[in-house]
Amino acid sequence: MLKRHFAPGASPATLVPHTEGEGAVKPRIHLLEYDANSFAEHEVTESADLLALIDAGKITWINIDGLGDIDALELLARKYGLHPLALEDVLNTGQRPKVEEFQDHLFIVAQMVYQDATECICGEQVSIFLGKNYVITVQEEPEYDVFNPVRERLRAGRGSIRKSKADYLAYALLDSIIDHYFPVLDELGRSIEDLEDQLLENPERSMVLKLHEHRRSLTQLRRYVWPLRDLVNGLLHDNSGQIKAPTKVFLRDCYDHTVQLMDFVESYKEITTGLMELYHSSVGLRTNEVMRVLTVITSIFIPLTFIVGVYGMNFSQEPPDNKTMPLNMPELYSPHGYIVVMGVMLVIAVAQLVFFRRKGWL
């Protein structure tokens, strides 16, 4: 979820392939072409072969996975007139979700969210070019994406996607990106609920670290979801003619989903804030319980310590020269002095316990 910057001062529209990180791989190019009656699918191994496979009479979806090479992007830019600044944003990952209008195409940036094999929440930029009969999508890396449901619908010819134009395909891809936020947030919500139960039963320091991880994930998701709503709203009010009226009806549903996502993110953020306060309150209550018990124990031993201290001074009533000293401690030579003192100490301790119990301090 880190943003990649070019060197400060670089000239506009500088295209620099990724040389490190997950995107620094040779791009995988996947070509889908279809109309109402036909469907074709190709894996393109060499960028130079791409243009020869494109059928101008069909709807074309070109998906590029990986940013380690810009040859395919440059070829497509020349063929479809893609703006150089849009190509720069494709390579400068971590862009804020947005939609930009150019002369004969729209450029859409969205953040795709998914969980990897370790159930870690990952974010990846998806760049979408929408033209009259084509959609070009560019992803950072080839291992994960959320477009398989759309591919399966195209292969099976289900629904109206094969009968619709390129703008409907762009909607379907954007809708798939938005819908895949929900299972990620559902899993995050379950984890937060489990943490809440654990905090109520036995708060531990490790839970605070987990809460901070969740808050960090929610903060990042909020950065993605808020501008995503504006993106869909921009498509709903598109005046370029690239988004047709029938597709805008479906985009309204997308807009509703982004509002729901915002509600989930904000609700979970409030819950995590409350859980953090709950943790501090639980720790404070446990500390108070411990301090109360220690205070009671200390209070019991204060008079006992006083008695022991007094009789531990060992003043003798009779000095070595047998001269009587009446003001010294006569109890030291009492035959039952030890038993009497222990009994007095026991009575004092029991009396204190009874008093504390009646006061509700125990």
Rank of each mutant, 00 (worst) to 15 (best):
P326F: 02
I128H: 00
Y134F: 15
F250C: 09
G68Q: 11
D179C: 07
A110Q: 07
H237G: 11
E124S: 02
L209D: 05
P27H: 07
L200W: 12
L169K: 01
Y171S: 08
V109N: 09
L173P: 03
R155M: 10
L251M: 09
P17L: 10
H280D: 13
V90L: 12
D69M: 12
K248E: 02
E289D: 15
Q220M: 14
F264T: 15
L75C: 01
Q115A: 14
F356V: 08
G241W: 10
R229F: 06
A52V: 02
F250T: 03
F264M: 15
I70T: 08
V135L: 09
A13N: 14
R190D: 15
R292V: 06
L235Q: 03
E152M: 07
R357M: 05
V135D: 01
M313H: 10
S176L: 10
R229L: 09
R358D: 03
K248G: 04
R153Y: 07
V208G: 04
V135P: 00
I300E: 05
I108M: 12
P227K: 01
Y168I: 05
T273M: 09
K26V: 00
V259G: 01
H5M: 14
V90D: 14
L169C: 10
H83S: 09
S164Y: 00
T19Y: 11
G189K: 01
E141D: 08
P12S: 14
C120Q: 09
Y255A: 09
V184R: 03
P142W: 04
E270T: 12
R151D: 06
M325G: 00
L130W: 03
S299L: 11
C120P: 03
A156W: 06
Y224T: 13
G189V: 00
G57I: 02
T60Q: 08
L50I: 14
A156I: 03
K132V: 10
L32Q: 02
F129Q: 04
A24F: 07
V99I: 05
V44I: 14
H105C: 04
K323F: 12
G234N: 06
E277H: 05
A24E: 05
E152N: 12
E119P: 01
L261I: 13
P17Y: 12
V138Q: 11
Y80L: 11
Q139T: 06
G123F: 09
I271E: 03
V150T: 11
I348C: 10
N288P: 03
F301N: 03
L174D: 00
L73K: 10
V25H: 07
K163D: 12
V113K: 02
G23K: 07
L87C: 14
E46W: 02
Q95V: 04
Y224I: 14
E100H: 05
F315H: 13
A40L: 08
